[in-house]
Computed example of a mutant assay.
Amino acid sequence: MADTLPPSVSPGDGAARRRRRERHLAGLLREHYGTGWLPESVAANLARIELDRAAGTATLHLRGGGRLIDCGDRLVLHGRPREAAVAELVAAVDRHGWTSVTLTGDPAFRVAVAAALADRRPSVAVVGLDEADRQAVGAELARRAEERRRVALDALRAAERDHLARLAGRQPTARDAAMLEAVRDAQAAASWGDAAAVRAAAEGDIEGAVRAGAALRRREEAPAATSEPATDGPQAPAPAYRPPWTQGPPPSQRF
């Protein structure tokens, strides 16, 4: 088999070859985008990169098939909008620093990328979506939010079980009781959909979720402000929330 390959030299250890390849690809990305240091993980979805300095383009070949061509003022995807392809598009948008984008292509592509851009922090505004696109993106964001809430609750319930297991066979102290109550407050906050608690717990940051739960409890227990309007009688409905991706870029960013 080796006789059929071109002459070459490479590290003998397979893991070393993979790490070196990822470092090489990260270096090419850093060179093209003019960024600072980039971790090897930025190359996780990439098979290879071709830089065309004359044309000013970078072609990112994806491990799962397809390629992304970065022309500087446009990102063009050749292939299906699989998860890895969408992730690389969002990463390229982030490296360029774009705060609003216009999407072209079929509805599956527009919805997948618009949802990913709306779901990042901070979100990126998407201009020119039609009503069907907006409804599909809203449904996808709701699905993702519910999935994150489920993951967060599973993590917090596991934290509660671990805490109870550590208490087995001994008398709980006041500190033990306070910690258990704090975890349960975080569970309640995540169950109610508190964004900070859900995000922290879903990412495995149980201490952050506990802090978010405590903050929500303090807000709930705070006395109502005396300046609030009376609530007896019919009230005008609050305007429906419109996420940033439905509103387009702010006036300062419109050209």
Results as ranks from 00 to 15, higher is better:
R199I: 08
P11R: 12
P243V: 01
A195D: 14
T4K: 14
S41V: 04
A188W: 01
V90F: 03
E88V: 02
G65S: 08
A139I: 05
G14V: 11
P250I: 00
D162T: 14
T4G: 06
L129C: 04
L117Q: 07
V137T: 14
V127Y: 01
E228G: 15
V86A: 09
F255K: 03
G14D: 14
L51C: 07
L68C: 02
T246H: 10
L164S: 13
T246P: 10
A145L: 00
R170G: 12
P107F: 13
A201C: 11
G36I: 10
V124P: 15
V111M: 10
A58I: 06
V76E: 15
H24C: 02
Q187E: 08
V126W: 03
R74S: 15
R170D: 10
V210T: 08
A152W: 07
Y241G: 13
A168N: 02
A155R: 12
G36A: 14
E131L: 10
A222C: 08
V86Q: 09
A165Y: 05
R80G: 07
I49P: 12
D3I: 08
A222M: 10
R74N: 12
R53T: 05
P7S: 09
R134D: 05
Q171I: 04
W245A: 13
P244H: 06
V111A: 13
P251N: 11
S252L: 12
R149A: 09
P11E: 03
G128R: 08
A177I: 03
R21E: 15
A168Y: 01
E181G: 11
A186D: 13
L164V: 05
R166P: 05
L141S: 13
G34N: 01
G34E: 06
E83G: 08
P7M: 04
A214K: 10
R175M: 14
D185P: 04
A132D: 14
A15N: 12
R242Y: 04
R157Q: 12
L51N: 12
R48A: 15
E181P: 03
Q253I: 00
T4I: 07
I49T: 11
A186G: 15
Q135M: 11
L5R: 10
D73Q: 15
R110F: 02
P6W: 03
R219M: 12
H163P: 06
Q187Y: 02
D73M: 06
H78E: 15
L29W: 00
W192S: 10
R23F: 07
T99A: 15
A116T: 07
E140F: 00
A55V: 00
P234T: 07
S123M: 05
D232L: 13
G65L: 02
G12A: 15
R20L: 15
A186C: 11
R63Q: 11
A44Y: 01
A142G: 03
A182I: 07
A209T: 03
V126P: 01
G97K: 09
R80T: 02
P7Y: 02
A188N: 02
A159I: 04
I206F: 07
A230T: 10
P223M: 04
A44K: 11
R120Y: 01
